[in-house]
Design a protein around this nucleic acid. Sequence first.
DNA 1: CACGAGACTTGCCTGGACGAAC
DNA 2: GTTCGTCCAGGCAAGTCTCGTG
Length: 604
Amino acid sequence: MKRCFCVISRFIYLSTERNKGASLVSNVRHDHTRAAAAKTLSDFRWEESKSSDSQKWSRLEHNGPYFAPEYDPLPASVPFYYDGQLLKLSPATEEIATFYAKMLDHEYTSKEAFQNNFFTDWREEMTSEERKQIKTLSKCDFSHMHKHFLEKSEERKNMTKEEKQVLKEESSRLVEQYGFCVLDGHREKIGNFKLEPPGLFRGRGEHPKMGKLKKRIQPEHVAINCSQDAKIPEAPAGHRWKRVQHDNTVTWLASWLENIHGRPKYIMLNPSSKLKGEKDWQKYETARQLKVCVNAIRKQYKRDWTSREMKSRQRGVAIYFIDKLALRAGNEKDEESADTVGCCSLRVEHISLHRRLDGLEHVVEFDFLGKDSIRYYNKVPVEKQVFKNLKLFIKHKDPEDDLFDRITTVNLNKALNECMPGLTAKVFRTFNASTTLQDQLNKLTAEDMTVEEKILSYNRANRAVAILCNHQRAAPKTFEKSMQLLQEKIQKKKEQIEEAKRELKAAKKAHRDAPSDRCRKLVEKKEKLVQRLCEQLKKLQLQETDREENKVIALGTSKLNYLDPRITVAWCKKHNVPIEKIYNKTQRDKFTWAIHMTDESFQF
DNA sequence: CACGAGACTTGCCTGGACGAAC
DNA sequence: GTTCGTCCAGGCAAGTCTCGTG
């Protein structure tokens, strides 16, 4: 498998290198396409790939991370008052105050947890003098700071073109210096070369740590990873790195521990890199592998529904949910984070069982907060045996008890792995998402459609996946307004059509009454106008449908993470839709591998 | 097996660039 | 020229899963 990808990756490099003849590129592609076609799924050796996969590179060199600029103290003209008294804060204290002052408009500064966390952490950073004086948050007056930053941002908006140009050049110099690394002889883009600046932590949902201080990262906190023979990046003057290591079994260039949860964070490559692309390709191949054995797995979990062992029954139902509803695995979480769940961590309170609902039998009603505190709400008719089992699982339990108390993500994944090497809960999401896209595209695309209609079909297929995976977004702030505008446009267009039709009729009549070349030409002209207007109307109406259906659905996540790009590429080729209409520049870069290795016959 | 550390993927939001409409 | 709206890259939080250790 590994070897197979090497062919592809060599091709990608070839094709992205300048001054290479097009004929060479197409030759490579041709060869590869055949090689890939000849390769069947059973040829993949997962065990083998596992050992060889552990080495991620042989040579790695980079310039280290870019540190956030030092704090620039406020001008003396921006006062801070405590309890009505002017107070000059020390730079460190002032800096943290500005984090809060910048957020005053946000709803969450009104939350008690946010205020308490912020104030506790702020006081910890104060000088003892300041700590003695500043005892109550509500007595702090940040309003002048707040105003100062509003003005600053206004200033920034009103910069001249030239000033903006200067900034732009500065930032591209930064990218030039820090934004790339050299991995195995190839210059690769780094994903996030800038270290996160200090600020206030705002978790998602009801996060118990909201408002806590995210501290400034110092070089002494940062570990550097590069190859032994590489030039070690220089630490900022007067500083040294936490450590420099040469571990080629990992892909990160730099890492540090964030202070909120004490979890590691990393600087890694951009998705367009070979390293990431290879991994991505592997992911989809695993998902395609599941396609081959999913029937057997389904049979197995259905058998488990009637197992004598409670654990097996629970696992059978859990995998059924993961498969049917594309739920996430649902690892255990600690108390120090928002209360969200996935499949294995579902609690009794998250489901309601309805013997009969809306004319359907055995309906399970799900209502819980999933990843990022996004609500999952769904009413699903299930097999009778699943229903029976669920009743059994919740018997004698309290609402806050685990629904699946005998299983964990670890043993669930272990069981899955025994069915198919490499299989874990999340593979089902990839598999179901990509399968859905393929099915929907096949169903929704017709040859006689215009390109616009085909794109609408694609978006609908994409949307079906997003709904399956529960990818949501906040409705755009301007949604209502822009929708209304669009409707007015449509109305206007309709009126134009009426008008044009009347004119056409009149022209026809004139031509009938007194045929002439001039009259005939006028009729033709009017006919064309009507036709053109109708086409425009259709386009607008398509746009309206698309936008309405998309109001709270986020398509990006599935497009980027769940849909095998080869499905899209093949579809575009087959139906003559330019790939640029579906993938923007970033997406094309990320999916370069797929764009080059896929021909129109590919099916997931 | 439980646990925690570590590595890597997935996820939503936002600020600013850019183009269209006024 | 200004305003408005859309799109996208970047930001960073929050998941999943693996591995080593006792």
